[in-house]
Amino acid sequence: MSRAPRATKAVEVEEDPDLPVRSNPDLLGHDHAAATLEKAARSGRLPHAWMAAGPPGIGKATLGYRFARWLMAGMAERDPVPGAASLHLPEEHPTFRRIAAGAHADLRALRPNTGDGGVKKVIRVDDARAAIRFMAMTPAEGGWRFVLVDGAELLQPQAANALLKTLEEPPPRSVLMLTTAAPDRLLPTILSRVRRLDLSPLPDAAMETLLRRLQPDLNPTERDALARIAQGSPGRALMLAEGEGLAIQAMVDEVLNGLAQGDRRRWHALADGVAAKRDGSSFATFVALLRQAISSAVRSAARGQAPPPWLALRPLAEWSTLWDSLGRLASETDGLSLDRKQAVLTALGWLTPKR
């Protein structure tokens, strides 16, 4: 009698969050930074350490991978291609394909992971030390060794100190590139040993081009709204588009525009909606957009521009204090696994002016 076939266990494939960045052939709005890197490489005196600084999601890691691909493909030793963008490497190039697949022997990327306590993401010291050993090895393909530290402000103190030793005595034919949204959180000794590139938010035209190509189903009104709340950050725009960012922005607008009436009847329904997702993504987006709306309104008032009517409900100093308090509330709610609905209700209570 034949046996019934044994059921096979489904193999879970771990998602690679870095794949969209590694395989992205485009770099919009940062031509000067790319040209600076290419010029330095062609000079024959390439600095061994760089730092790309700027707001989250504007293309810092994209620039890092673009530089790594171009450098490791030996393009610095070849004549420039007439009319080609800085650091351009065709998608069909073998180096491009291997890096996109995460299979290049001379490239390593460090990204924040959940720390030992499981509360916040950090770049661990063990990973930093492994990257240092990697940099000290002879390039496997005869060119360069490249380490990209994406989110360097999240280096553990021991990890930062370990990298500092490599910055002081860099191995030959190696490049270390840091990206950070908070350069002031890095050690001064690290900042003094890297060549800094400051990346600015993308202009409206570049954001429009990008959103039209990546989000073709959005109508012009939705694209305009997405570009406005993303504030020149393509990564943030895509995250908001995929995570119901426009719907959450509508909730934020409803809350702020209704402050004068003090109507609390919809508070619980709104808090339920914000806290619905178990991963906390809607809550994080709600608080981030709420704080962004407050900071934008305060800046407009400080510049003599017409702020939204709700800003007049309290002094500017109180709005600044409230902005800080909302940030702490979000951090504590996430770090201590507090009830998100109650956190939203707390935030709404703080926003409502006293009568």
Rank of each mutant, 00 (worst) to 15 (best):
G232Q: 06
V175K: 09
A35L: 09
R291D: 04
R97T: 13
L27F: 09
S233E: 05
I248G: 08
V81N: 04
E208N: 13
T352D: 10
A276L: 11
R303K: 14
L154T: 14
L87F: 02
L348V: 01
P234L: 04
A288Q: 11
K60Q: 00
A288L: 10
D116A: 15
D204R: 14
A205F: 00
R196F: 09
W319M: 11
L19T: 08
D116Y: 11
T346Q: 15
E15K: 14
R3Y: 10
L191H: 01
L178S: 07
I132S: 12
L210M: 12
A241C: 08
I132Q: 03
R265C: 00
N24H: 12
R195T: 11
L259W: 00
K354V: 12
F146A: 06
G151E: 04
K341W: 01
L338F: 10
R355A: 12
A35S: 12
T180I: 09
K39M: 11
P17Y: 07
R264F: 08
P353W: 07
A230Y: 09
V287T: 12
A247K: 06
A105Y: 06
S2Y: 11
T189H: 08
D16M: 02
E92M: 13
A276I: 07
P20S: 06
A297W: 05
G143M: 13
L107V: 07
P172C: 12
E141P: 10
P234M: 00
L322F: 08
A250E: 11
G327N: 06
A128V: 04
L218M: 00
G44I: 06
Q292G: 11
L316Q: 15
A68N: 07
P55S: 10
A276H: 08
R314M: 10
S325D: 15
L107S: 01
S300F: 05
G44L: 00
K121V: 03
R223Q: 13
A7Q: 14
A68P: 05
V125H: 00
S23W: 03
L348Q: 05
R108E: 02
G117R: 08
I229R: 07
S320Q: 15
V344S: 05
M137L: 15
R303V: 03
W267K: 02
R340H: 09
R22L: 07
D26H: 01
A76N: 04
A61L: 04
L211E: 08
R97H: 09
P157L: 03
L71V: 00
P188N: 07
D18V: 08
P17W: 02
P17V: 03
P309T: 10
K39I: 09
T352S: 13
W144L: 05
R173H: 13
W70Y: 06
R145F: 09
D106Y: 01
G29W: 03
R78W: 08
A73C: 04
E141Y: 12
L270A: 12
R97W: 10
